[in-house]
């Protein structure tokens, strides 16, 4: 009985905006929902907005990295946007470097990056 994070489709992009503090089950649900939606919609890009997240611990960090890998295998690039500076500093000290995860300052830059990646692939 946990809340689910909505996955919105805009054109060929899936947008996930995380607006509340996540418990572990919600994180796992999101991973599954997102993979299913990528396949169902044929999305080419995923943007995950974490600007509302006050912390990213190893569990959420691992979800972000795993999501990026799964999406790539399914043909979609993932951009994580809006990470707070304090969160980035904490993640690095925790020992998580989020290798393989593309990031952008905000949603606008994330979308721009996705378009550029799509143009490069075409």
């Amino acid at each position: 009985m946990t809340d689910r994070v909505p996955v919105l489709k805009i054109g060929e992009i899936l947008l996930v905006s995380i607006q509340f503090d996540l418990e572990d089950q919600t994180v796992l649900d999101l991973q599954e929902d997102l993979s299913n939606r990528i396949v169902a919609t044929g999305a080419k890009g995923v943007v995950i907005d974490i600007s509302a997240l006050e912390i990213v611990d190893s569990f959420v960090g691992r979800m972000l990295a795993t999501n990026a890998s799964i999406s790539r295998i399914l043909g979609a690039e993932t951009i994580v946007v809006g990470m707070r500076p304090a969160v980035a500093m904490t993640l690095v000290e925790l020992g998580l470097s989020l290798n393989g995860v593309r990031t952008a300052m905000n949603l606008e830059r994330g979308l721009k990056l996705l378009r550029r990646l799509a143009a490069g692939r075409a």
Binding site: D24, E54, I55, V56, D57, S58, F59, R84, P85, A86, V87, M89, T90, E93, L94
Partner: peptide, 26 residues
């Protein structure tokens, strides 16, 4: 987090403490 705010910890310290609490709680 509420205690850290009440104690006047700087934001980065709050974030580190709450993240540590999340790891240890899990």
């Amino acid at each position: 987090r509420t205690l850290a705010q009440r104690g006047g910890l700087p934001l980065v310290h709050q974030t580190k403490l709450v993240t540590a609490a999340s790891e240890l709680g899990r």
